[in-house]
């Protein structure tokens, strides 16, 4: 008869109930797990509430506005990677009416926040001062420009917008993974 390697004697390590049925129940562990589960359900509920509020983007809390004497900027303070959104610049009446309006945007709007399109298309684009300066043909107010954004990577990005001759507007945008 050939020898068989790695043989092991059969042993019953599973605890028995009344010395009859081997179940292996571990109620101490299970009670801890139930506690963990309860905590996790509360955390899940909290995350969902925060999500409905827009803390993770695409909700009321995420909508933000910035304004100065030249423009009003509507944007999302929380964006999501790969998800389209709109940053809108509404020019104040005193900014328009001169045939054209210039808008300087920081490079982070293009790189970090992933500008896909500028609506309407600018009549001229100049690079420099750490960003781009767009020139739009403009008539009387109201008038606005939209930036179609689609961030390609998560992070925190600070952007700056400025109509030459007025104070710059800056804000930080968190891009969720």
């Amino acid at each position: 008869m050939s020898e068989v390697a790695f043989q092991k004697t059969v042993g019953d390590s599973v605890p028995k109930i009344n010395d009859e049925v081997a179940v292996g129940e571990d109620l101490d562990f299970q009670r801890k797990w139930w506690k963990f589960e309860s905590v996790m359900w509360w955390i899940i509920a909290l995350l969902l509430l925060l999500n409905f509020a827009g803390v993770f983007g695409r909700g009321p809390v995420a909508h933000a506005k910035l304004a100065n004497d030249a423009m009003l900027v509507k944007y999302e303070r929380v964006e999501r990677t790969g998800t389209p959104s709109i940053l809108e610049v509404q020019f104040k009446p005193n900014t328009l009416g001169r045939g054209q309006v210039k808008l300087h945007v920081s490079q982070s709007i293009v790189d970090g926040l992933g500008t896909q399109r500028v609506i309407p298309s600018p009549s001229d684009t100049a690079i420099g001062r750490g960003g781009l300066t767009y020139t739009f043909s403009a008539e009387q107010a109201p008038g606005s420009v939209q930036f179609a954004l689609q961030p390609s990577r998560p992070g925190i990005f600070e952007f700056t917008l400025q109509v030459p001759g007025s104070s710059p507007l800056s804000a930080k945008v968190v891009v969720m993974p």
Partner: peptide
């Protein structure tokens, strides 16, 4: 135990 739990009576 973490992944599967334990049998429960």
């Amino acid at each position: 135990r973490l992944l599967d739990g334990t049998p429960l009576i």
